[in-house]
Structures are given as structure tokens and as C-alpha cells.
């Protein structure tokens, strides 16, 4: 579904990604873990076309076939089905919950099925239906996260990118968000999850990558990485 080859990205004078390669197969959940500043968000922003790669390719099985995303405009990438739920929620504060959700379906021309998609999101997050008329900015952090995920789902992702969905949330809310990710996974949504909360991410992931200083230093199944000594020490806080 997604195949990243030797991706180099610079921000300002700094080379943030020094040639990373990774892949995500259809239907699986992949996790990208790493410390602050390792380049996780840079990776996702480049995939979405908000940052431009210096070199490398990003092959994606999109709506119009296999394409290279590195030259595509951001709105075209969303249209191809690569949809990102950005770090820090980034909802539209003064727009209502309802309007926030319909922004997710901005590119969809099938108005009828959009209605049923909104109902699906409401079923997943009932609070979004209850608070449909409220301004997005009045929601709690956890509710905003649900809104951000709901908005991304309404764009009908073939591949859903989740950037730090647990960031700044209460432990209970993190559990709920991961439950939802699990549900999406069971429904067959392909997911690329970026997390600092490595324990939960590795637990859910079929495939995982460790990003350190702009390079992929380890990869394997979620299980393998969770058992790896180095990962246990560096990211799971377990002394071996």
C-alpha cells in the first residue's frame, strides 16, 4: 500500500530525515516510534505533501493507481486516500463539531453516502453527535481528539496516518482512543501510527519501525520490537 524509499528531508539547514525506507501493507497497522526530534512528524508531513522531500520516493496505492506522492499537492494526496490526523488535534476551533466533520468530507462528491459516513462516525464517537452544534474549541482535549479522528475518517482514508493520538491526554482517554484504533484495525483500515507511547503502539502494531536521528534503526513485527532489549531499555523504560 505504501512504500517509502530512501527519503531525505531537510528543514531549514538541518537534514531531518537521512534516507528512511519503510513500508505498510494493505490492512495492517504499522507503528513508527522514536524520541522527540527523531523525525516522526516530519515523516508524516512529507507523506501528506506539506513538506517536500529532497530526494527519495513514496509509492502509494491510491485511488488512481500506484503513484509517487513526493511531487503531488497536499489536496491531491488527500484525494488519493492518504489522510492524516495531525499532531495536536488541529481542529477548527470556531467551527461547530458538525462543520468540523463535514470539512473532513470536503473532497467527497457523493453527498448521500457522506451522511451515512457521518452516522458511522457518530456511532464510533457518540459524544460528537451530542455536541454537534457546539464550537470545536469548547470540547475537552479527548473529545477534540475524537473529532480529529472522525474528521480524518470522513475523508475515507485508504491509509490513515495518526500522529501522536495519545499526546496530552489522560490515561483513561488514551485507552479509549487506542480501543478505537483497534476497532478501525479490525474493520480493515490500513494505519500508520506515530507514537511516543511505544508500549501501546507496539502492542497494537503488526509492523513497527524505530526512528532515531532521522534513520530507521530497527524494524520488525510489533512483538519482536517489544521483546528487543534495546527497545525495552530506550523506549519502554524496562531495565533488562
Amino acid at each position: 500500500m505504501l512504500e517509502v524509499r530512501d527519503l531525505h528531508v531537510t528543514r531549514g539547514a538541518t537534514e531531518v530525515l537521512k534516507g528512511i525506507s519503510l513500508e505498510v501493507l494493505e490492512g495492517e497497522t504499522a507503528a513508527l516510534i522514536g524520541a522527540n526530534g527523531a523525525g516522526k512528524s516530519t515523516t508524516l508531513l512529507t507523506l501528506s505533501g506539506l513538506l517536500r522531500a529532497k530526494s527519495g520516493t513514496v509509492r502509494f496505492e491510491g485511488a488512481s493507481g500506484s503513484i509517487d506522492l513526493t511531487k503531488l499537492a497536499a489536496e491531491r494526496i488527500v484525494g488519493e486516500g492518504l489522510v492524516q490526523c495531525p499532531e495536536g488535534r488541529q481542529i477548527f476551533h470556531s467551527l461547530s463539531v458538525e462543520e468540523n466533520l463535514s470539512m473532513g468530507g470536503y473532497l467527497r462528491r457523493d453527498r448521500a453516502s457522506l451522511g451515512s459516513s457521518i452516522e458511522e462516525v457518530h456511532a464510533l464517537f457518540p459524544i460528537l453527535k451530542e455536541r454537534a452544534k457546539a464550537a470545536g474549541g469548547t470540547l475537552s482535549g479527548g473529545e477534540q481528539m475524537m473529532l480529529a479522528i472522525g474528521r480524518a475518517l470522513l475523508a475515507r482514508p485508504r491509509l490513515l496516518l495518526l500522529d501522536e493520538p495519545s499526546l496530552g491526554l489522560a490515561p483513561q482517554m488514551i485507552e479509549r482512543i487506542f480501543d478505537v484504533i483497534e476497532t478501525l484495525k479490525k474493520r480493515g483500515t490500513t494505519i500508520l501510527l506515530v507514537e511516543q507511547n511505544a508500549a501501546m503502539a507496539l502492542d497494537i502494531a503488526d509492523r513497527a519501525y524505530v526512528l532515531e536521528n532521522g534513520r530507521i534503526t530497527l524494524s520488525g513485527s510489533g512483538r519482536e520490537l517489544a521483546d528487543n532489549d534495546r527497545v525495552r531499555q530506550a523506549y519502554l523504560g524496562i531495565a533488562s
Binding site: 501528506s48 506539506l50 497536499a74 489536496e75 488527500v78 495531525p86
Partner: peptide, 14 residues
């Protein structure tokens, strides 16, 4: 209005 509120999120919505 979405662009005014949060240009990055608007771009990510297509």
C-alpha cells in the same frame, strides 16, 4: 473559514 482557523488542518482535509 477552515483555512482561516487552521491552514494546516485545512490542507490535510484536502
Amino acid at each position: 473559514m477552515a483555512t482561516r482557523e487552521n491552514a494546516m488542518a485545512a490542507e490535510l482535509s484536502g
